[in-house]
Design a protein around this nucleic acid. Sequence first.
DNA 1: ATATCTGAACCGAACGATCGGTACATATCT
DNA 2: AGATATGTACCGATCGTTCGGTTCAGATAT
Lengths: 188, 188
Amino acid sequence: MAGAATGSKDMAASRLLGVFREHGYDGASLAELSKATGLGRSSLYHHFPGGKEDMAKAVFDHIHEWMEISALAPLREPGDPAERLQKMINAIDRYYVGGYERCLLGSFVLGGSRGRFQPQLKSSFSGLIKALAALAVEAGASQEQGFERAEEAVVQIQGSLVVSGGLDDPAPFRRVMERLPRLILGRS
Amino acid sequence: MAGAATGSKDMAASRLLGVFREHGYDGASLAELSKATGLGRSSLYHHFPGGKEDMAKAVFDHIHEWMEISALAPLREPGDPAERLQKMINAIDRYYVGGYERCLLGSFVLGGSRGRFQPQLKSSFSGLIKALAALAVEAGASQEQGFERAEEAVVQIQGSLVVSGGLDDPAPFRRVMERLPRLILGRS
DNA sequence: ATATCTGAACCGAACGATCGGTACATATCT
DNA sequence: AGATATGTACCGATCGTTCGGTTCAGATAT
């Protein structure tokens, strides 16, 4: 049992994530956070002494870890760029349940709590863009092209989640997922 | 002075818009809505008997009206498609202050209050997509192509507002604004 | 003309409920 | 015993909403 030390806290964070995802930061109440985790109020404050804000930070860590392991790691493996990109796309598709689930990052950006979490948001978005840009460069793009393609990819992912949510129709998200390989790897 | 009858209610709605835009639905408190409009709490309830939800609905109407007049009307005028599109792009750019201001539609989609306003959200997004699609078709695209381009345009606008907000950098939004003409009107 | 009535617009105070957060005594484990 | 974890009861602040009451322009009545 070497690396399994993150156990209970990580479990809590994933439950908290669900609540923040559904209600946003302001909309997520301690009552629901408590119910979702199965922890009483004081237990929550034991694990997250900084209160609600601390819980949200833990959720960011959780997301960061997920992104690193499930989305970015495949991009850095050896092998065919197209295959590695597809692994990441599949991970993202699973994460957003085909476009039916909201993005917590987007929710925090557009919600009233942007300022509080700007560093985490910035780090998440730029990390994602950088990893995708590296892959694009590997696939033959120039540094500048690679960055532009990567930024556009993240823009389209985020935008499609908003539009799919607004239309109550996962099709826009699905179409973006299909466009991603050509967008990142080039037009041929 | 014929059509100026929408006066005070519309004025209030535009002030309310600012608060909802900045704090989201859950984050916007009656105290701030009152301060922003200059109306006391109970005066707000006089104009919006349905309370906070009613105020948000009024804000949607306000947005719908703005979109119809400032963004969509130019698209329907006679004249060069590229020029008409550029008018709309300029209007959007002004509306989001070059990427520094949030989108209320996106905020409501990603926030906890999506279900309450789904009809309005759906109508706004699909109206925008339809108008852009019509212009694309006029510029030579097939029906299907036109719709795809229009959807992608809205996806990119929304996505760039999220990414620009997350990175605290208006550049992604600006780049999308620059890409829009080619995206809608075709590659040539 | 002037007194009377009406109703829209407005207000601050107060409501019950819930908010995020704390204190503390009791478990549970080592 | 001593540290870690949890449940209960509670705090003041703020939430969205409602209430009682005032102001004042304009219609109506005499």
